[in-house]
Simulated scan of single mutants.
Amino acid sequence: MEHYEKKISFLGENIQTIRKHRGMKQQELADKIGINMQSLSKIERGVNYPTFDTLEKIMDVLGVTPNELLSGEWKYIDHTEPYIMDIIKREQDFNVSLDYLSENEFFNDEKECRFYMETKLIQYIHNYITNEVTELEELMEIKQLIQRQKIERMMKVHKEMRGLDRYREQPKEYKYHDPYDDWIFRQLADIDSRNNIPDTSPQLDFDETDYEDYLKEKWNRGL
Rank of each mutant, 00 (worst) to 15 (best):
H158Q: 10
N104Y: 07
L204W: 12
R162A: 11
R45W: 04
M154K: 06
Q38Y: 11
K150P: 04
I58P: 03
I15Y: 04
L70K: 02
Y83T: 12
Y124E: 05
H79V: 03
G63K: 03
S71M: 14
N95D: 14
E105L: 15
F185T: 13
G163Q: 06
I88D: 08
L188I: 13
L101R: 02
L121A: 05
E208D: 15
E135L: 11
E212M: 13
E5D: 06
L215F: 02
Q203H: 13
H21R: 06
D207T: 10
I129V: 06
E103M: 15
N196H: 10
K25G: 09
I142Y: 03
Y124V: 12
L40F: 06
E138F: 01
N131G: 07
L55C: 02
V133W: 08
V133D: 09
N95V: 15
L164T: 00
S71Y: 09
M140H: 10
H3Y: 10
M59K: 03
V64Q: 02
L98I: 07
G46N: 00
E103W: 14
E68N: 09
I122C: 08
Y49L: 08
Q149K: 13
I122Q: 06
V61T: 00
I151H: 11
I87T: 13
R148M: 14
E112V: 01
I35Y: 03
D192W: 04
K89I: 10
Q123D: 09
I33E: 07
G34N: 03
P82S: 10
I88E: 12
L121W: 00
D109T: 05
